[in-house]
Design a protein around this nucleic acid. Structure first.
Lengths: 199, 199
DNA sequence: AAATTAAGTCATCGGTCGATGACAAGAGAC
DNA sequence: GTCTCTTGTCATCGACCGATGACTTAATTT
């Protein structure tokens, strides 16, 4: 049996597997190229099936995208840990973890790349605000905790962008521990009471 | 003269003005919808001219985009000011300034929205690394200044994303001064020598 | 006022897009 | 072995895409 024969052998028919494969391919493509830069023919081509299957299984490209980037928001965060621990966990998950199903990036950063669409922007806003900032603010004491919590969120989000998108050299070289120490220092500085005359 | 007549009066022919109007419309559209989500017919329609003019004046959609998001990198940054001043300036320009020609966002954030395209990604990387991180690193003393400089950059970039894209409430309410005080505190914390046993 | 140059328009090309419905073929039931 | 349900394919639709070149019309020159 030649290689060509092997490749052209009749494929086993498996709805669930095909659907999952389409979803995987969609995640990679959407992550790399964004929503508008990705075509359903491309996704189907990656899997080796007909593009019409995308609509049979997902109804529309929009719904495919929504399902592809769907991830459950972390729930274990609200477990009474101090904010420095929380930040360290998110530093790991958002910045350093290899989300291989999303081409290496955290889903939040992936959505950033398709934020030209209002639906994506709304969802991004919601996930950031309700999924993360709420927990941050609860653990942030002192004056105007919401603003200082948002600074922590901005640092983590920004680090993700810098590392995965800009590929800045120092962050690429630095290990997790080294970065975590600095992030902890920042979070500590934001948590403590401000100096009486800072200006 | 009715309104319809007014609108349909023969337009004055002015190459420079038309070109500039196309560029302005392109900036708004690209900022809002990203590169792939914007068509040349849309841009020309905003100006009220024929789409063919886009290609006559800009040669291709790619070149139009490149020219639309082109901004000179800030040069006044390298003037011996301390890093806290630098950060405050960039906080103002990147996060709080209203870049009305880009629908309110800083061009770096606009490019983020089209970062599905490799050319945009490369340019974003270059502008961040050469335009900002270099100055940051020079002014950052102590051990591993490059990494700590990137943390400052990440904070500023992240703040821009949070404010303009996620529209987080505290940042929207907070004035520039209030935020500047906190950013200054973070930069100071990153600048000073770390604690001997940080873990 | 005629001629020349420049600005803007029009029709159109080849290609791709998301989406649809009719159809072919493999899998399991009997 | 045949029937039936499911899985996947094919052809195609209408719309839009970026891009091109011929053409019309306004402004300028002579």
């Amino acid at each position: 049996m030649t290689y060509a024969d092997f490749m052209q052998r009749p494929k086993r028919r498996d709805k669930a597997a095909t659907r999952a494969a389409l979803l995987d391919a969609a995640r990679l493509r959407f992550a790399r190229q964004g929503y508008d830069g990705t075509g359903v023919r491309e996704i189907a081509g990656d899997v080796g099936v007909d593009p019409a299957l995308v609509f049979r299984y997902f109804e529309s490209k929009d719904r495919l995208y929504a399902e592809a980037v769907h991830t459950e928001l972390p729930t274990g965060l609200a477990s009474g840990r101090p904010l420095t621990d929380l930040a360290a966990t998110l530093l790991h998950d958002v910045v350093f973890a290899d989300w291989e199903e999303f081409d290496g990036e955290h889903p939040l950063l992936v959505m950033l790349r398709s934020s030209g669409r209002a639906a994506v922007r709304d969802r991004l806003r919601q996930e950031i605000c309700e999924g993360y900032l709420k927990d941050f603010t609860e653990r942030m004491g002192g004056d105007n905790p919401a603003l200082r919590a948002e600074l922590v969120g901005a640092l983590l989000l920004g680090l993700g962008v810098m590392r995965s998108l800009a590929g800045t050299p120092a962050l690429a070289d630095a290990g997790f521990e080294e970065t975590r120490e600095l992030v902890t220092r920042v979070v500590a500085a934001l948590s403590e009471e401000g100096p009486p005359a800072a200006g």
